[in-house]
Structure formats: structure tokens, C-alpha cells
Design a binder for these strands. Structure first.
Lengths: 193, 193
DNA sequence: GGGAAAAATTGATGTAGATTAAGCGTGCAC
DNA sequence: GTGCACGCTTAATCTACATCAATTTTTCCC
């Protein structure tokens, strides 16, 4: 159960066995059923989640009342409503399981203690958030510069298995287009392009 | 000269005088003339910049050959090509002065040493990048959910003085629309809306 | 395994914003 | 001061994508 998160930490820092043990003891393993919610908009986000297996989506409901996905989290992703988690104020996002999903969750309180006990974790999360920022920045640039079709091709190139696991309407919402238009595009470029 | 960056650090951490002195000694003050470049696409980004005064834009050139702004940096902003700076591989962004601009720059090497000498800085940059991520994430959601006019209104509400200092075409590029359409919108909602 | 509900597809029409092109104002180099 | 490049505006046309509505396919539940 803990090998995956250990490998994840090892991408950026080295913890000895004792340190990892301190870390592991703060984690709570939890399983969420398909369609259940881990985070609700309007509430204070208590946890940061590491996805051990399964599939989550992070979304908000916009002014027109439509659900818009901002992130899919698969195995070995960290996910949370960072604004709410970090500030401990009510957030705007929902986090929902698209499949039965096993997570390791870390409470705000546990996280703060960990950062003091194992300062190397400051480095780990710093690098994690740098990479998250870079990915979002690139996504903004794609929204500005590319057509929906180019963004869809990028998406399936970057997450090849996502096409299989994630419903079309969820992908459309992530890309910022309607399900109808996504369907049309897929039909289109079998013969075309 | 150093009061502004000291205040900036103090937003998230407390450094004593000795620590701040270590930090300050690594900074290099530099002035860039209007229109000059601090970072060039294709090159390895050597520095992270703290804007002491002036105005910078971070942009790339897309596949169609058009310049697209991803960020404006005014007083008290940190800016860099984070991918290139962090990985020390060639980057995709240009950083250009839109006005004569004074920066404090920190080399990759100096930054790494600082993070070892003053571990509290790991925390500082972690929080800085969390906030940067949250802002980018919000921008993605706005691109997905809002019309160009709504995004323009948000922009001038968030950066009230930007409208005065930043040329329209640069704002249009940041919003992901053409200068022509921005001009039309401005004319439009003087009488309308 | 049959039936309801949700997801995906298909078609007709509507619209936000792009593109192209022309004219206008303004800052700045000589 | 004058010329000229460049940014801003206005107008006509075009297109990527949305909206609305109907049909088919898939999923899931007792």
C-alpha cells in the first residue's frame, strides 16, 4: 500500500526509513465509492489526497450552473482544493470519484506537523507545486493558442488511457467545449485529417 | 532598495537580520530598459526575478507565429520561466520589459545554496508557488467558463492600474482575443451594459 | 434480462469572436 | 516641425464552436 507513495516522494527527496515511518503514520487510507464526493464546494477542505488507485475529478460549478472540470487525478497524483486547504477558508471546488478510488489522505494539521518534523517535505511540496504550476500555465497557453481539436489531440496524447476511463462529457468539460462538439470532432477526424 | 523584497519575504516567513543579510548578498540588482529582454526562448533560464519597479511581460510565440502573453509582472512580483529555471533545460518563454524595470535577480546556483543555508526559504517558495498555482487554475476556469468581456472586466478589476500602463494589444494577447475585438468591446460597453 | 436513465451521436440553426482591410491618431527619430 | 512606424478603431465577412432538439446507444439497477 505504501510503496507507491514512497516512490512518489523519492522523485524529489530521499527519506530514510525512520522519516518515512513518521510520514506514513500521519496518512489515513480511505476508499471512496464511484460518484461519491471527497470535497464539497462551500466547505473548508480538510485534506490533501494522494491517489493510490482509481480516478478523481476536481470541478466547480460556474455562474451559469454548469459543472466544469479542472483536473483529473489518477494513480500517483496529489489533489486537493489548494486554496481552501491552504487558507482553511470555504472553497469553490468539488472533488468526486469517477471510479472506486483508494486514497491516502493527509489532514491540514498533520501536514503542518510533518513540515516541521521533516523539513525535507517543504522541498518536496515546493517542487510538486512548481510542476503543478507549470502544467497549469501550459494549459492556459493552450487555451489561448490552440483550437479545440488540437487540445483534444494533446489530451489523448498526454493521457492515452484517459480516453478509455473517462466519460466523453467529462473530457469535453475539461477541454472547455460541449459534449456535442467533442463527439462531432471524433467522428470528423476518422476519415478527415 | 531591499525593503520591498524584505516585506515580500515577510508575507510568509520571518527571517532575522543575519539571515536576511545572507539572502540579500545573493541578489543582484539590475536595470532593464523598456523593450529589452531578460529571458529568450530556446535558452536556459539562469535567473528568477523579483520586480522592484517597472513592468514585465512573460510570453511565448505559438505555432502560428503569434506572441501570447501568459503573465504581467509589476512591483513585488516574482517571475521566471519556471520550467527552464527549475530543470535547467532550454525554455519556451520570453521575458521582456514593457517599461524601464529594476529587478533583483537570483541565479539558479545562488538559489540552491540559499535553500540549503536557510531552509525557511523552502517554505517561502512553496507557499509562493501554491499561490501561483491557484491563480493559474482560476485563470483556466475563467477561460473555460467566461466570455471575453467577462474576462476583460475581471482583468481591469483585478489590475486597475494595468489598463493605464499596459498597451491594449498586450492585454488582448493575455486575454486570448484579438486587439480588434478588445477595441470593439470597450467601445460597446460605454453605452451598452 | 428487461426497462429506465444517462451518455453519445446527428442535424439545423445561431453567435462570439477571428480575419482582412482600410483609415485614423500619436509618439518619437531626424 | 515633419515624416513615419505603430497602435487603436471601425466595418464587412467568415468560422469555430454553442445551442436546441431528436434519435440511438450504453449503462446500470431490481
Amino acid at each position: 500500500m505504501y510503496e507507491r507513495i514512497k516512490a512518489n516522494l523519492n522523485r524529489h527527496i530521499k527519506l530514510d526509513d525512520e522519516e518515512f515511518d513518521v510520514f506514513r503514520k500521519k496518512l489515513v487510507a480511505e476508499t471512496y465509492k464511484k460518484d461519491s464526493h471527497l470535497i464539497q464546494s462551500g466547505q473548508i477542505c480538510k485534506y490533501t489526497y494522494f491517489v493510490h488507485s482509481g480516478l478523481l475529478r476536481l470541478y466547480d460549478i460556474n455562474e451559469k450552473g454548469l459543472e466544469k472540470n479542472t483536473l483529473f487525478a489518477v494513480e500517483e497524483w496529489w489533489v486537493s482544493d489548494l486554496y481552501s486547504f491552504h487558507s482553511q477558508k470555504p472553497g469553490n471546488y468539488f472533488l468526486q470519484a469517477l471510479d472506486d478510488t483508494e486514497v491516502l489522505q493527509l489532514s491540514k494539521h498533520a501536514m503542518e506537523n510533518l513540515l516541521l518534523e521533516i523539513p525535507k517535505l517543504e522541498r518536496f511540496f515546493r517542487i510538486l507545486h512548481i510542476n503543478a504550476f507549470i502544467a497549469q500555465q501550459e494549459r492556459v497557453m493552450h487555451m489561448i493558442s490552440k483550437t479545440a481539436e488540437e487540445r483534444y489531440r494533446d489530451f489523448i496524447r498526454k493521457y492515452p488511457d484517459a480516453e478509455l476511463r473517462i466519460p466523453q462529457k467529462q473530457i469535453a468539460s475539461y477541454l472547455g467545449i460541449t459534449p456535442e462538439f467533442l463527439s462531432r470532432m471524433k467522428a470528423g477526424f476518422k476519415h478527415g485529417a
